[in-house]
């Protein structure tokens, strides 16, 4: 059973009817091929029309869709010789952050990502993608390792944000994130980050200070969740749709603001409707972003990355 979002109700109804007709045909009985054809056409048109004009709040729902491909799906599909590496060497291992070495299209790379999990068991295991200081410290270690061995860094970001907890604060959550940002900016190797679902605040930027930042069409990237923003500025969390609108958190908005580099088109109806196609187009986009970076030396990469981030917020945007 596919999980439908609230605004997808009319699509769900049509697709439900379609399924019923198909079953009737399969059962022998009537030949409903013509009806099926018509209904399928109608459902597809409705899906296309709905997804062509998703509101920012609807995009936030799609970005958080439980069936949307998660970080480990990308790792599995795009990385060969996958060799996970664990631990921050100081306190512990944080499964909210995936890290390791492998090959991307034959080339050895270091991989980082935030993993939300895809069912109850994995969601709990990965703490819903909310990392603690040891997670960011592990990320920093891996980025430094990548620098030492001249391995490009690929990151896949999908997190509602860093974990807000007592121990996380006691162990220096803020410092851990700051150091991870610093390590990303210092890395003398190509760095490509992809926002695959939710790019939540400091927990996302910790893994996204990259030479090229790619973003899936319906992913969101923001300084605060729409709900959090609404409850602070409007004092009412139910006004999240307005906040989502105001925050300009869609890939299209962020591209226009020059805060990301590339928007990756999703299959019709969102990444979760065709995982294989999504994984393939992200692979192609990462390869296209990485390729020109491989020709640049470490100091040039670092200098360009600095210049790029230093410019953010300075230039006027139409």
């Amino acid at each position: 059973m596919r999980h439908f979002l609230d605004f997808e109700k009319p699509i769900a109804e049509l697709e439900g009817k379609l399924e019923e007709l198909r079953r009737t045909t399969d059962a022998g009985g009537l030949d409903l091929h013509e009806e099926i054809e018509k209904l399928r056409d109608k459902a597809e048109k409705l899906l296309a029309a709905t997804y062509a004009k998703l509101t920012p709040w609807q995009k936030a729902q799609v970005a958080r869709h439980p069936e949307r491909p998660k970080c480990l799906h990308y790792v599995e599909a795009l990385i060969e010789d996958w060799t996970p590496l664990a631990g921050d060497r100081a306190f512990g291992e944080d499964a909210a952050i995936i890290s390791g070495l492998g090959r991307f299209r034959g080339r050895p790379v270091a991989v980082l990502g935030t993993e939300k999990g895809h069912d109850t068991e994995t969601r709990v295991k990965h703490n819903f993608g909310m990392a603690k200081p040891e997670g960011y410290r592990k990320a920093r270690r891996i980025m430094q390792l990548a620098g030492r061995f001249n391995l490009p860094i690929l990151s896949f970001v999908d997190t509602s944000g860093a974990f807000p907890g007592i121990e996380a604060e006691a162990r220096g959550q803020a410092e851990a994130i700051a150091r991870s940002i610093e390590a990303g900016l210092e890395a003398p190797v190509p760095f490509v980050a992809t926002i695959i679902g939710e790019g939540g605040s400091g927990g996302a930027i910790a893994l996204a200070t990259a030479d090229r930042v790619l973003m899936l069409e319906h992913a969101i990237y923001s300084v605060i969740s729409p709900e959090g923003c609404a409850s602070i500025l409007w004092r009412d969390a139910t006004l999240a749709p307005q906040a989502a609108e105001a925050l300009k958190l869609t890939a299209e908005d962020l591209k226009r603001l020059n805060l990301i580099d590339t928007v990756i088109t999703e299959p019709l109806g969102g990444a979760h409707r065709d995982t294989a196609a999504t994984l393939a187009s992200v692979g192609d986009a990462v390869a296209a972003a990485l390729d020109p970076l491989l020709k640049l030396d470490g100091p040039t990469l670092k200098a360009r990355r600095r210049d790029k981030f230093l410019e953010m917020g300075r230039s006027a945007v139409a």
Partner: peptide
Amino acid sequence: GARMQEGAVSLMQMPRTVIATQ
């Protein structure tokens, strides 16, 4: 913290100010 009213522009001030320290 971040100035929410500047959205992701304010988020990007995190790397920007880290560059200042560098």
